Amino acid sequence: MTQSIVVVSGGLGVPSTSRMLGDQIGEAARAALAERGIGAGVGTIELRDFAVDITNNMLTRYASPRLAEMIDTVTGADGLVIVSPVFTASVSGLLKSFLDVLDPQALEGMPVVMAATGGSARHSMVLEFVMRPIFSYLRAAIMPTGVFAAPEDWGSDTGGGHLAERAARAGAELAAAIEGAAPTRRREEPMTSLPFEQLLANIRPGA
């Protein structure tokens, strides 16, 4: 069975360093799974493509069909890489808004790598002081290694050196978590509505 790794990028630019970092970690996880004899596909979702849909969902509590499909892709993945640029000592408002429209239980038990990009290494604490509390609240299975990339980490736009090492470590952790969690992670069954007559028949006096 092929496993699914989804990279969710909260980056706003084109090209986006957040997406570049997420793709690097996702590929590292895919390669680590391949070494274990497990096939995996990596897909990337750029939230800027869904900005209007996310905003409308927050205002109306209704997810457009394209947003609902995207959410199903995210929540149905076997592992996630979540990447955000740092804005005002926090994650992007776009990423936070997306997480706000998810069902609070949608990521429970989901293996997640946290990653971020910023203009200075001083912003790296956003991983521990902003992102970790959010995903702890959502009860995701957070990987031990978070990955932060400052401009000097890229090196000719390749993300080599220590950044590549951290991405590989995080990817290997995600691969191990996917291998261990895939058979056991709770999957929500589609909710079905019983006919009204059957609901009435199930009512008993004194219940």
Rank of each mutant, 00 (worst) to 15 (best):
Y62N: 13
Y62C: 11
S64M: 08
S64L: 07
P65G: 08
P65K: 07
R66S: 12
R66M: 08
R66I: 12
L67C: 07
L67V: 03
A68R: 14
E69I: 07
E69S: 14
E69M: 12
D72K: 14
D72Q: 13
T73N: 13
T73Y: 01
V74R: 05
V74W: 05
V74T: 04
G76K: 04
G76Q: 07
D78T: 09
G79N: 04
G79D: 01
G79C: 07
L80T: 04
L80P: 00
V81Y: 00
V81H: 00
V81D: 01
I82R: 01
V83T: 13
V83S: 04
S84M: 07
P85F: 10
V86D: 06
F87C: 10
F87K: 09
F87P: 11
T88K: 15
T88D: 14
T88Q: 15
T88I: 15
T88M: 15
T88L: 15
A89H: 14
A89R: 15
S90H: 11
S90F: 12
S90E: 09
V91N: 09
V91T: 15
S92T: 15
G93Y: 10
L94E: 09
L95T: 06
L95A: 08
L95I: 10
L95D: 08
K96Q: 12
K96L: 13
K96A: 09
K96Y: 05
K96R: 15
S97V: 10
D100W: 09
D100P: 01
V101I: 15
L102M: 03
D103H: 07
P104L: 05
P104I: 06
P104K: 08
Q105E: 13
A106I: 02
A106E: 05
L107M: 05
L107K: 00
L107P: 02
E108K: 14
E108D: 10
E108S: 14
E108Q: 12
E108C: 10
M110K: 13
P111T: 08
V113T: 09
V113I: 12
V113K: 02
M114I: 15
A115F: 01
A116M: 06
A116T: 05
T117L: 05
G118Y: 06
G119T: 09
G119A: 13
G119S: 11
S120P: 02
S120W: 11
A121E: 15
R122F: 14
R122E: 14
R122A: 15
H123P: 11
S124C: 10
S124I: 10
M125S: 11
V126W: 06
V126Y: 11
V126M: 14
E128D: 15
E128R: 08
F129W: 11
F129V: 13
M131G: 07
R132A: 13
P133V: 03
P133F: 00
P133K: 07
P133E: 05
F135Q: 01
L138N: 04
L138A: 09
R139F: 02
R139L: 07
R139G: 04
A140K: 02
A140S: 13
A141P: 00
A141I: 03
A141C: 14
A141N: 11
I142K: 02
P144K: 08
P144L: 11
P144A: 11
T145R: 06
G146E: 06
G146N: 08
V147C: 05
V147A: 04
A149T: 12
A149P: 01
P151L: 06
E152F: 09
D153Q: 05
D153N: 11
W154G: 00
G155K: 11
G155N: 13
